[in-house]
Structures are given as C-alpha cells and as structure tokens.
Amino acid sequence: MLTLDGVSAGYRGLRTLHDVSLTVADGEIVALVGANGAGKTTTLRTISGFLRPTAGRIRFADRDIAGTRPSDIVRAGLVQVPEGRDLFGPLTVVENLEMGGYTQDAATRARSLREVYELFPILAERAKQPAETMSGGQQQMLAIARALMARPRLLMLDEPSVGLAPKLVGAVLDAVRRIRDHGVTVLLVEQNAAQALSICDRAYVLESGAVAMSGRGTAMVKDPRVRRAYLGM
C-alpha cells in the first residue's frame, strides 16, 4: 500500500534520511523503531508531505505522492497522528473531531463520529470540553480519533505512547490493534520498542537516518542485537 524507495530528506540542506526503503502492505501493522534522532519522525513528516524528499520515490495506493501537499495526502487516505498531537487546543473535543473529518461529507462525518465514540467512549463524555483541558492520555485518544475521522486507509502514529502512564500505554496500543482490525493499515513509530514489536507484524529499525534492520516483529524481539540496543536486555 505504501512504498518508500531510496528516500533521502532533511532540513535546510542537512540530510537526515539516507536512502530509506520500506513497504507497508494492506492490513499490516508495521513498526518503525530506533533511538532518538534516528530519523523516525523525519520519515513520517516526509511521507505526510511536510518535507519534500531530495531523492527517491514515495508511492501510496499506486500514486507517486512525493512533493504532494499535506492536505492532498490526507485526501488520498494517508493520515498522520503527529508526535505532540497538534490538536486544536481551544476548540472543543467534538469540534476537533469534526475538523478531523474535514475532507469527508456530512453523512460520512456523522457515521465516523459514532464509530470513534464507540472506540473511545470518553470522547463522547467530554465532547463539549476544550481539547487542551483534557489529560495527556485523553488527548492522545482524541488525536487518534481525529485522524480516524478522515477515514484513512493508512494511519501513521508518531510516538503515541510518549509521556503516558504505563496503564495508558497499554490502552493506546490496544486501540491501535482494534483500529487495524477495522481494516486500517498502521505504520507505528515508537521509541518504546518492546511495546511496538509486541503488537506489530513487521518492523524496521532506523539508525542514523538509514534502515539498519527489518523483519517480523516476533523475530526481532528475539534478535540479540535488537535486544541489546533497543530493549535493554
């Protein structure tokens, strides 16, 4: 569904991604793990259209999307939940969700709203509350729900568990699994490699802006190099 082929990118002439190739197939959960500064967020920002790749091709659903504007990439069905969430703080929860469905028609928005309320009942309770007044975990759920409102075919999550209490990390990852069960493909970026590897089908390890390793999640957990470098074992 998504293919990166030899993608390089960077900020202000500083190249931070080198020749990254990866694929995400329909219905998979693919994890992208690596240390701080390994290029995980840069990879997602490049796919989302915030950064233009300096080399390589990005194909999504049989279309070359490199250089396409972020808003058009959302319309194509590729939606990102960014690190830091980028919620509309002063807007209410329901307004955030309505905006999440900005690219959809009114009937679809109403249907999606029911579905995300089912997935995250707390959001229905807090519908009229400004997003910025909610707890970190609730904001993360809102960020995921807002992305789902765009009816993505592929959902990209950037560090959804960062800053959350361990109990909430489990809840968020559980939600990710349920989202995949609803037919949405997931590309998950995590620093918390153990959690990410435990729920993904396949994983890529990024080191210094390049793919260092890739394989099935269950195999990676057993790989001694991964265990030493990322799982602290």
């Binding site: 989302s48 915030f50 504007r69 972020p70 808003s71 058009d72 959302v74 319309r75 939606v79 990102q80 939940v81 960014p82 969430r85 980028d86 919620l87 509309f88 703080g89 002063p90 807007l91 307004e95 955030n96 309505e98 905006m99 999440g100 469905g101 900005y102 690219t103 807002r146 992305a147 409102m149 765009a150």
Partner: peptide, 24 residues
C-alpha cells in the same frame, strides 16, 4: 460554521490543520 471552525483550527494549530486536510 464549518469554514469558521476551520479558520479557528488554523489559528490554534496550523500543522494540525494541514494534517486533517485543511488547505491552510
């Protein structure tokens, strides 16, 4: 209105607005 909410969304977080498909 929807367009008014979109304007407020851009004011609140331009990056977030692009991520939901608003042409900022």
């Amino acid at each position: 209105t929807r367009v008014g909410t979109a304007i407020r969304a851009v004011a609140a977080n331009p990056d977030g607005a692009q991520l939901v498909g608003i042409d900022v």
